[in-house]
Amino acid sequence: MLLIDNVAKTFGSQPAREVLSDVSLRICAGQYIAIMGESGSGKSTLLNLIAGLDLPDRGRVIFEGRVLSELDDSQRTILRRAHLGFVFQAFHLLPHLSLERNVGLPLALNGIHGARAQQRIDEILDAVGLSSRRRSMPANLSGGEMQRAAVARALVHRPKLVLADEPTGNLDAESAQEVLALLRIQLKQDGAAGILVTHSPAAAETTDEIFRLHRGRLSASTSVHETI
């Protein structure tokens, strides 16, 4: 489903800094992996390349058989809109939309409105335990609730791949465990693949396989779970 083939990315010019060097990775449908690494190791850059938000200086990112660098910005955006979901460390819920409307945003973007959209929103809010808070505004939610809403938003349109960038970075241990469990369950239920970028070994251990990114190079680590 996703193939990262010898990808490199450099930032700046004087002096230039190569953030990613010849990174290669293959992800299959339903596979859930973690990428660990210290700050500045290139984790978020790799996610941006996978999402088609940025392009590699060398190498290729192939998603669902399409080389992202061969697509224009609009094509990449439409591909992302339909097949990718995101969970951010800082939640990034739109502050002036209710929780329900935040969660429904990817559906609206994909042209799904009305009863069909509402049914799916109800279903996912129920799944993440936020049905009773559907009309709340983000400012009135706790961190854990906001991140559960973000997970719901990432999954509501049944993406093929979910990218989670430090999703527990702003949460206490208990909320973090809740969110990670929720993310894993939902991914497995929908058969979606997932990439979790994290500093936290505990978080990484909730995935099927752990990779380590160090000084721009990706190396396989230990598999901690059997595929369910």
Partner: peptide, 15 residues
């Protein structure tokens, strides 16, 4: 900025 970034991630085009 963060909000716009999130929107771009979830599929908003520049347009």
């Amino acid at each position: 900025r963060g909000e716009f970034g999130a929107l771009r991630h979830i599929g908003f085009t520049r347009g």
